[in-house]
Nucleic acid binder design. Structure first.
Length: 570
RNA sequence: UGCUUCGUGGUGUAAUUGGCAACACGUCUGACUCUGAAUCAGAAGAGUCCAGGUUCGAGCCCUGGCGAAGCAACCA
């Protein structure tokens, strides 16, 4: 065992803020278990990209360690060379760091322990606690029984130690082909727990491993690697999701046969993260990627860490979200609105305000001089004075949002309409005097207004009130951009939970909407991929990685709360 | 007809020696506002799966039901 002597855990947290797992840890520390040490681990399999469910685990593994003055290891659970690749190792490390956590120099791999695990398997054979089974997986499965019926014993269960040792050695040396032999722990074929019915602990795999190459022809199963790896690393609390609950007796059985002292890692399970209108299993997400139903693992509609990052989510917002939803043993489905609230909350403070017109319509101020341009001063963020202000050009021809004008507005509409007044934010109050419609489509193509020169923001009559305030851009100064609007990936709250349906039946056909000719204020022309803004009155947006000089692309992270939009829908 | 775990507003959580069911999101009002945002103030919404029991008093303890999830990969 290495690394078992880090500093004694100290209780920094007030117990009212501790989740049930942290409370257990606190009790263990108080009771002096493992000398009051707290050491956790985050153990991803490098077979795909991390999603927000992993973020929940990461926050707990690293967070709990930090709360009690302990440490958290990163350990890649790489026991299956069929599925694992170095590419995934790199993305996982990037995502953890981005979320704001650090494993320092403690980057481990289950494959680091292959020799020790093999020796332990040999030890079990010598103690009569493991045997080589020559049967096919079908035969073994048939003998396993069912949850309600006990299993039957393998005909190879009582082989001699010598024969088992010989066979296992030959498995290791590559003499056998895949599927012909396995090593099983000899426990209890009648156990009410299926996992205790002589579980397979080693299988033959004749394939290169991403780290150990062709050294091995036998690989340990998850159950034969996880608890032991925890033990080797001096882990005190091994936190995992609920589906491993039934594995715990096996975890303990193996650790108890491995350990040589009082120290013992403790597995505790918590509920998985589920979100409405999306799916969270790595396999399902992979399906979406492979069938090209999304743009890749980092498609902004994906609940992956890389997808959320590209969508414009901040690490803080994800951590705050995770804090809000908590850890219990209840199978819960969390409302996506909670996540959206978390980003808005964070971006409200951080994101500079800018003007962008997504669905532009031309507005002409007929009494404004043709060649005049004013530089209007706009506050960058009313929530943070330190973010200062910027100058935005204003001229006779502007673009405003098509939605902000109605030919025949209803009572509660307080934007622009014939003979109505409205303020152009940071500029003047204008009155609509006329508008032009395309005779064929019936679409409004031009809105004519007059402005009141006395009402300039900050000017003498600036105090006059009008009900509506619109954002705008100066037509000759604005530049074009592509803006991608995202909606929920699925139409159904719980696409996985619908009996008789494939989850893909519920894909939302309108989850991506691409707007090509959006008009952005000039200050945005320098924005770099990843930069985040509030498009005033619309939502939070960020520059996409597809963005190139002269070909800007923005993603909508989340719209602003919109009580008008909700009213209008009714 | 097994084992393990879980049932608290619409959703997620809290209520920790039994003591007025609390918070967040969402929803709806209102105030403010040069963002129909943010902010502020307020409202509606559960009597804790059901039935018994113990107790002055039960979400919490006991008994019995009901319901849900996980478990039968040589995946993790």
């Amino acid at each position: 065992m290495n690394d078992k002597n880090n500093s004694t855990g100290k209780e920094t947290a007030d117990s009212s803020s501790l989740n049930f797992i942290e409370q257990i840890i606190q009790e263990d520390v108080r009771a002096g278990k493992n000398h009051g040490r707290v050491h956790t681990r985050f153990p991803p399999e490098p077979n795909g990209y991390l999603h927000i469910g992993h973020a929940k685990a990461i926050c707990l593994d690293f967070g709990a360690a930090e709360k009690f003055g302990g440490k958290c290891n990163l350990r890649f659970d790489d026991t299956n060379p069929m599925k694992e690749e170095t590419e995934y190792v790199d993305s996982i490390k990037e995502d953890i760091h981005w979320l704001g956590f650090d494993w320092e120099d403690r980057e481990f791999y289950a494959s680091d322990y292959f020799d020790r695990l093999y020796d332990f398997a040999v030890d079990l054979i010598q103690r009569g606690l493991a045997y080589v089974d020559d049967q096919s997986s079908e035969q073994i499965a048939a003998q396993k029984g069912t949850p309600t019926k006990p299993g039957t014993e393998s005909p190879f269960r009582n082989r001699s130690v010598e024969e088992n040792l010989d066979l296992f050695t030959r498995m290791k040396s590559g003499e056998f082909s895949e599927g012909t032999h396995v090593l099983r722990a000899k426990i209890d074929m009648a156990s009410p727990n299926m996992h205790m019915r002589d579980p397979v602990i080693y299988r033959v795999v004749n394939r290169a491993h991403h780290r150990t190459g062709n050294k091995w022809h036998v690989y340990p199963m998850y159950d034969f690697a996880h608890g032991q790896s925890d033990y080797f690393e001096g882990i005190t609390h091994s936190l995992c999701t609920l589906e491993f609950e039934v594995h715990r007796p096996l975890y303990d059985w193996l650790v108890d046969r491995l350990r040589t002292d009082d120290y013992r890692p403790r597995q505790i399970e918590f509920n998985r993260l589920n979100l409405t209108y999306t799916v969270m299993s790595k396999r399902k997400l992979q399906e979406l990627v492979e069938e090209k139903l999304v743009d890749g693992w980092d498609d902004p509609r994906m609940p992956t860490i890389s997808g959320l990052r590209r969508r414009g989510y901040t690490p803080e917002s994800i951590r705050n979200f995770v804090k809000t939803i908590g850890y219990t043993k209840v199978e819960a489905i969390n409302d996506f609105a909670l996540l959206e609230h978390a980003v808005r909350d964070d971006l409200n403070i951080k994101a500079p305000r800018v003007f962008a017109v997504l669905n532009p319509v031309k507005l002409i101020i007929t009494n404004y001089p043709e060649d005049r341009v004013e530089e209007m001063e706009l506050i960058n963020n009313p929530e943070d004075e330190a973010m200062g202000s910027r100058r935005v050009p204003f001229s006779r021809e502007l673009f405003i949002e098509r939605d902000d004008f109605m030919e025949d507005p209803p009572r509660k509409f307080f934007r622009l309409g014939p003979d109505r007044e409205v303020r152009l934010k940071g500029a003047y109050i204008i009155r609509c005097t006329d508008f032009v419609k395309d005779p064929d489509s019936g679409q409004v193509t031009e809105i004519h207004c007059t402005y009141d020169p006395d009402t300039k923001s900050g000017g003498t009559a600036a105090g006059r009130k009008v009900k509506g305030t619109l954002h705008w851009v100066s037509a000759p100064h604005a530049f074009d951009a592509e803006v991608r609007l995202y909606d929920r990936l699925f139409n159904n709250e719980d696409p996985m939970g619908q009996k008789g349906h494939d989850f893909k039946d519920f894909l939302n056909p309108d989850s991506l909407q691409v707007l090509k000719n959006c008009k952005l204020e000039p200050s945005l022309s320098e924005a770099k991929p990843g930069e985040k803004f509030q498009f005033q009155r619309l939502g939070y947006f960020c520059v996409d990685k597809d963005s190139a000089p002269g070909k800007p692309v923005f993603n909508r992270t989340v719209p602003l709360r919109d009580t008008w939009g909700r009213m209008a829908k009714k």
